[in-house]
Write a protein that binds this DNA or RNA. Structure first.
Lengths: 225, 225
DNA sequence: GCCAATGTTAAAGATACGTTAAAATGGACA
DNA sequence: TGTCCATTTTAACGTATCTTTAACATTGGC
């Protein structure tokens, strides 16, 4: 699974976006850009960033409001959110924290300072991502414990099988294309043969149950009860 | 034990100390004061504050060094540490984060901003409350005394082994990835080889019991009964 | 019935982990 | 300061397990 940390940056000044993108990508982060608050929310939903940097002053939806809305979406309740703000804007600072921000960063932004602060935030909070557990029919998946229960019976699957099951079960009934499975589990850089997926599916069918895994020929697989 | 949140403040200017003490006590915090870094470390050990504010420029031991020393004491590995710094001291900012600080606060300090920031930090921190003692099955861990009891028999483990056990036992059943273990026990700056963790696990298996420590290949380890 | 896509199987390949001993580090103490 | 000892880390190697491949069988849509 691709493990680059994704950061969403929202600012209405293209110069700043470009500047941050350049500096952060060089550090190995994956950057997603947005030009206003509305776009930031849309892109956050699409890309699931671990961290979000918001300019306070933006058209469409300002940073404060954007943050408030994001915090109301369960997925982003624990995402790191930091504000970009001009010096001396103390009002923003207070309002920002009250709305659930984790930090604010004053402009002009110095890349080294920014990166240090981000690392400090992530060091402390980053690993606290708690993944949800899935329960469908007789199958239960405990992501934290890396365990699968089938009719209460404890199964411990190898990594790839677990990830595959975990992926398919994250949206029961949804058909995952082979492409999608590949990119989500192996990442976009690693290329594996087509038979590889089949083999893992086979193992899962053996262990979990034949009928739960349905093949949609020419498309992909789905998990269902 | 008093349930007030304790904050240790170290600064060599009595005015600032008094100012902060007044404002923070009014908010219901318990304040411990220190006039230099050396005193800060002594008092931290005595009072176990949840949060520490350090001035950068102090006699005896400056803030940066104090922070570094504190971070080397296991008890304070996860304590919130923030620096008090004059505006534009960017050097301090960087050095501060690299040394493991969680935030820096620029002087002149505005009480409302300070309190907001502290709350932002603690909001995150709150969920991370680690209990003093853990007891699972035949194992008992006394974090304060750095002791482990196995079937009532006292074991005194070396530091790293203790920390590793303590971490794994903090969430029994949860799989801790190697990455997670590394960052929680060694920090993000120190890099140790992969085999290092194995060796410590081995020692623990020897001393505590083979079956309690389970390997999840490709992921990490978990502790269970 | 044809053909491309998928299923099956076993074996090769890769990788992570276990184990051990030895080297490096660091603290206590003379 | 140097010596000693406990602790920590490294490095080398073996091994079990997981992952992928490849060859061949089977299936299902057209």
């Amino acid at each position: 699974m691709s493990d680059k940390i994704k950061i969403l940056i929202a600012d209405d000044e293209p110069d700043i976006l470009e500047f941050l993108q350049y500096n952060l990508e060089r550090e190995g982060y994956e950057i997603i850009l947005a030009e206003n608050g509305r776009e930031a929310i849309t892109k956050a939903k699409a890309h699931h960033p671990q961290m979000i940097l918001l300019d306070i002053m933006m058209p469409e939806l300002d940073g404060i409001e954007t943050c408030r809305e994001l915090r109301n979406i369960p997925e982003f309740k624990n995402t790191l959110i930091a504000f970009l703000t001009a010096r001396n804007e103390d009002y923003s600072q207070i309002a920002g924290f009250d709305v659930g921000a984790d930090d604010y960063i004053t402009k002009p932004i110095k890349p080294r300072v920014l990166i240090s602060r981000m690392k400090a935030l992530m060091r402390r909070f980053g690993s606290e991502v708690q993944e949800e557990n899935v329960s469908l029919g007789s199958i239960e998946i405990d992501r934290e414990k890396y365990l699968v229960y089938k009719d209460g019976e404890k199964l411990s699957l190898p990594k790839k099988e677990f990830e595959l099951l975990s992926l398919l079960a994250s949206k029961p009934g949804k058909v995952f294309s082979r492409k999608e499975i590949m990119s989500k589990i192996w990442g976009n850089d690693i290329i594996v043969g087509d038979r590889t997926i089949d083999v893992h599916i086979r193992k899962l069918r053996e262990k979990i149950g034949d009928d739960q895994f349905k093949t949609i020929k020419g498309i992909g697989y789905k998990f269902d009860v």
